[in-house]
Design a protein around this nucleic acid. Structure first.
Length: 567
RNA sequence: UGCCCGAUGGUGUAAUGGUAGCACAACUGACUCUGAAUCAGUUUGUCUUGGUUCAAAUCCAGGUCGGGCAGCCA
């Protein structure tokens, strides 16, 4: 039972906020959601769901210079895809610009906020340092009437950006820098994606967030650890004029509250995964510099990228549950994510045969021109998935790596004189490896045992290996993209002075042309499939009959590759 | 030399004063028409020093180490 669950459970039991649980997921629409957001989403929506409460989706759009509608749309799509639905309409911080403004005037009236003419640089000087207290602004004691006049003129855009700010009057000597008369409004003559130019001042996060939470009746405001030090300011904002909130909740809230809501902020550690970057700024940089093909490049840790790669919402949710919720800055092994993925995919993915690096095999004792249809099981993990037919003929393709001319003792696959099973097919024995002038193997010649149709020998003899194959004449060409981790170091960007872009894996994408069985002709984009013995894949959004395109989601676990590399 | 927060196997977490458990990873072995899956097993841990207590991962104090904070970003 993680600490947030404990807190919420205790609050419900004690009837705090009338026993209501109401959370919110408040992304800033300045980029696409990533797996780190998935953790937050699972916690925010999960706690509400678990305790019979509600969860709002709120776009935290208080900075028009960074935010775009494209992101607003993608965020909604991603949250829904992950399997969550929010309470009522999507909320926007900008819905509350009016309330924030009214409250700011009330603070001015109460002598708790003032208009400051210090430049950014002067303000930095006055702020002091981590160890040195700050100094009061010379504008701190400006009369209320003057503050009000100036603030209203700021709102009208009368002053250039950066000339004046509205500051909370708290304590320049506070050991917590965020309490040293923080700026709560800045002038910004920018057009906002929703409010246009109705406002030429925008509230700061620390000021707006508690107001938004209170107006929405939020009870538990869950966020990441870096906001912990901001909590005293969050509480300060709510504490100043409680009567304001009692009124504002009636006016601005979609809820009818029986008692004024008093939100509390709780902080948990953000998600970090090995070989992954989780910074929207850095992900944007990859997109802008074309080091990836966009926000939904299947190598990206964005939800849209993972979706395109073939990850399922179920796998991501299971992962988030297993990662846990603590206040410790941990780094989760990427292998745990892959484990959750494979566990889900194993249950649901239909099996197919696809030869990624083909070499031709001629079954010398099989009649020319004859085509047999063999039954193949669609998913051994799910009998209800049924069977399909796979064509078999004299000429096949098998994986180049499934043949070795001079195999080590533990190699179970094809080799001269060695008998193996073709999955769902026949037992075949290799008789010859045909080479070109340069000595490269160009073709294998094998014989088959007609008595072993389906894969079992009537005489009960066993073979150690089973390999996948496709019939050459019926095989379809498919472009296959093999993805590997985007970065080659465990914690990209963690070393001072090293640009994270230089830590990228040059082999994160390999494109090849594979031979796949005909049943894949109409593979639907986004539906997970397993290519037997090689991995889970799904057709890309650009895939279509006649020009098949598959993304590798994740490989199958491969204990042979370990054994082979040891030998 | 400020303030806030944290520390349990390789990794992620549980145990809320009473037998340190689970998962991932790693390694054995069994089974197998995917060297997959499945099954069985093995290795590895309470940052440190004191204190309180019959009993401490847990409570207290000091230390060590790690993270966060000096945007008119969120």
């Amino acid at each position: 039972m993680h600490f947030i669950r404990q807190i919420v459970a205790a609050d419900v039991q004690q009837g705090r906020n009338g026993g209501r649980v109401h959370t919110r997921f408040p992304p800033e629409p300045n980029g696409y959601l990533h797996i780190g957001h998935a953790k937050a989403i699972c916690i925010d929506f999960g706690m509400a769901k678990e305790f019979g409460g509600l969860c709002n989706l709120r776009m935290d759009d208080t900075n028009p210079s960074k935010e775009e509608v494209e992101y607003v749309d993608s965020i909604q799509e991603d949250v829904r895809w992950l399997g969550f639905d929010w309470f009522g309409d999507v909320r926007y911080a900008s819905d509350y610009f009016g309330a924030c403004y009214e409250y700011a005037e009330a603070l001015i009236q109460a002598g708790k906020a003032f208009v400051c003419d210090l430049t950014a640089e002067q303000m930095r000087e006055h702020r002091g340092t981590l160890t040195v207290p700050g100094k009061d602004s010379p504008f701190r004691e400006r009369p209320v009437a003057e503050n009000l006049d100036l603030f209203r003129r700021m709102r009208a855009g009368e002053f250039a950006d950066g000339v004046r700010t509205l500051r909370a009057k708290i304590d320049m000597n506070s050991p917590n820098i965020h309490m040293r008369d923080p700026v709560i409004y800045r002038g910004l003559r920018a057009s906002h994606h929703r409010t246009g130019e109705a406002w030429l001042i925008y509230p700061m996060y620390d000021y707006a967030h508690p107001i938004e939470d209170a107006l929405e009746g939020i009870t538990h405001s869950l966020c990441t650890l870096e906001f912990e030090i901001h909590r005293p300011l969050y509480d300060w904002v709510l504490d100043q004029i409680p009567e304001f909130f009692a009124e504002a909740q009636k006016k601005w809230s979609a809820l009818t509250l029986t008692e004024p809501a008093r939100p509390r902020q709780y902080e948990f550690a953000r998600l970090a995964i090995t070989y992954t970057i989780m910074s929207k700024r850095k992900l944007l940089e990859l997109v802008k510099s074309n080091l990836v093909e966009g926000w939904d490049d299947p190598r990206m840790p964005t939800l849209s990228g993972m979706r395109r790669r073939g990850y399922t919402p179920e796998a991501i949710r299971a992962f988030c549950e297993k990662v846990g919720v603590t206040k410790y800055n941990s780094v989760t092994d990427f292998a745990l994510l892959e484990h959750c993925l494979r566990e889900d995919l194993n249950q649901r993915a239909l099996r197919y045969m696809a030869v990624l690096d083909p070499i031709k095999v001629v079954i010398t004792n099989y009649p020319e021109g004859q085509v047999d249809e063999l039954d193949a099981v669609n998913n051994p993990a799910d009998p209800a998935a049924g069977t399909r037919q796979v064509p078999f003929s004299r000429e096949l393709y098998v994986e180049r790596a499934d043949f070795m001319e001079n195999p080590p003792k533990k190699f179970f696959r094809l080799a001269p004189g060695r008998e193996v099973r073709l999955r769902w097919g026949y037992l075949i024995t290799c008789t010859e490896a045909v080479k070109d002038a340069a000595g490269n193997i160009t073709e294998l010649r094998c014989t088959y045992d007609p008595a072993t149709r389906g894969g079992n020998a009537p005489d009960g003899r066993k073979v150690q290996g089973t390999i996948h194959w496709v019939s050459a004449a019926q095989a379809l060409d498919a472009t296959v993209r093999l993805y590997d981790r985007l970065f080659r170091v465990e914690e990209p960007g963690a070393t001072d002075g090293v640009d994270f872009k230089t830590e990228m894996n040059p082999d994160s994408l390999k494109i090849l042309t594979a031979k796949v069985e005909p049943a894949l002709a109409n593979a639907k984009p986004g539906v997970p499939v397993q290519f037997e013995r090689t991995g889970y894949f799904c057709a890309d959004k650009a895939s279509a009959p006649g020009r098949l395109l598959f993304n590798r989601t994740v490989t199958l676990r491969d204990s042979w590759i370990k054994a082979a590399s040891k030998a």
